[in-house]
């Protein structure tokens, strides 16, 4: 760590040569003596003599620095954390308001949105060093919160999952929006988009090309947490016959296939109930524990009071020496 020190009143430092004074003159009145050189050397006395000069210099230096208002300037230090830049891409389609069983949520069973909100909150609270961004999508993508380390804002953004859902699912534009969060951002750690959705949709050809270009370019990993409603199809389902294997008939399977072609690390997790969702999120947490370099801001620290304390200590030393002074060599 570098110590970036600054002073508010630099002109006070012009008095710094005063620091040499204690080396020219002892704080005690000297008695005349006829043969100083003939006296035997005494290491304790010598140490005291140097100590008093050091204390004198320290007192003057510390007082000057105190008057000059010494402080450590605000600076940022690079810090390696186990964090990631995570964008939570949330599905806000109407179906998210249903439970995993496909019914409307009532008091007993929580909805998919509610479960996702709860678990994502926990996930976020556990990961102190991550930056979180939140985006949502329905028919159109919704810009919610840029990448930030403000937990409160992220929490509030995740909480919006609790509000009723909107309309349909448009994964392609949502991903484009999530990717845009990383644009113009220095590559200081691992990046990942966590896509939470309960359904899939076809992505048109142009958007597919765009995603194929930007995912590797921005180095963003993709996690897809699929909240599967019982009875619905999931990304890992195999078609029963050849005719069924189309993007329209099995959008989840084809979206999964498309994600696998993105050229970036990608995993999909299928969650059929809150416990499975929890497992999926834990797995993501494990994967994202890679080292991350971030710039942490350290605010200005005022050191003047420390200087004064040091000066006081040095002066007390000198005072005690003065009180021990013998004012005569001869009686």
């Amino acid at each position: 760590m570098t110590l970036n020190l600054g002073v508010s009143y630099p002109w006070v430092l012009l008095l710094l040569p005063l620091v040499a004074l204690p080396w020219l003159q002892m704080p005690l009145d000297s008695r005349d003596h006829s043969c100083v050189a003939a006296l035997p050397a005494d290491s304790l006395s010598r140490a005291l003599q140097i100590g008093l000069a050091v204390a004198g210099s320290a007192a003057i230096l510390a007082t000057l620095l105190g008057i000059a208002d010494l402080h450590r300037v605000e600076h940022s230090i690079p810090r390696v954390g186990t964090g990631a830049h995570l964008v939570l891409l949330l599905d806000r389609s109407k179906s998210m308001d249903n439970t995993f069983a496909g019914r409307r949520a009532d008091g007993d069973e929580e909805s998919k949105a509610e479960a996702a909100r709860r678990l994502l909150s926990e996930f976020m609270q556990k990961r102190e060093h991550d930056l979180f961004g939140v985006a949502a999508f329905s028919t159109t993508p919704l810009y919610v919160l840029p990448l930030t380390d403000r937990r409160q804002a992220t929490q509030a953004a995740i909480d919006t999952l609790a509000t009723p859902g909107l309309a349909y699912t448009n994964v392609g534009d949502g991903l484009s929006l999530a990717l845009s969060y990383y644009r113009d951002l220095p590559m200081t750690g691992s990046r990942a988009i966590v896509l939470v959705s309960d359904g899939a949709a076809t992505i048109d050809f142009r958007t597919q090309e765009k995603l194929r270009q930007y995912f590797p370019e921005l180095g963003v990993r993709l996690y897809w947490v699929f909240l599967r409603t019982s009875g619905d199809r999931g990304p890992f389902d195999e078609p029963e016959n050849e005719q069924e294997d189309t993007p329209e008939a099995m959008p989840e399977r084809h979206l999964h296939k498309f994600f696998q072609t993105l050229g970036v690390p990608y995993s999909a997790y299928e969650a059929e109930n809150p416990q499975a969702l929890e497992q999926a999120i834990l797995q993501i947490a494990r994967l994202e524990n890679e080292p991350l370099v971030i710039q942490e801001k350290v605010p200005r620290v005022n050191l003047a009071h420390l200087c004064y304390a040091l000066a006081l200590g040095a002066l007390l030393l000198l005072l005690s020496a003065k009180l021990m002074e013998v004012r005569a060599w001869q009686a």
């Binding site: 005690l28 000297s30 006829s34 100083v36 050189a37 060599w329």
Partner: peptide
């Protein structure tokens, strides 16, 4: 006690 001395000649 502490006593500071100064040589009269040197």
């Amino acid at each position: 006690g502490l006593v500071a001395i100064r040589d009269l000649e040197s």
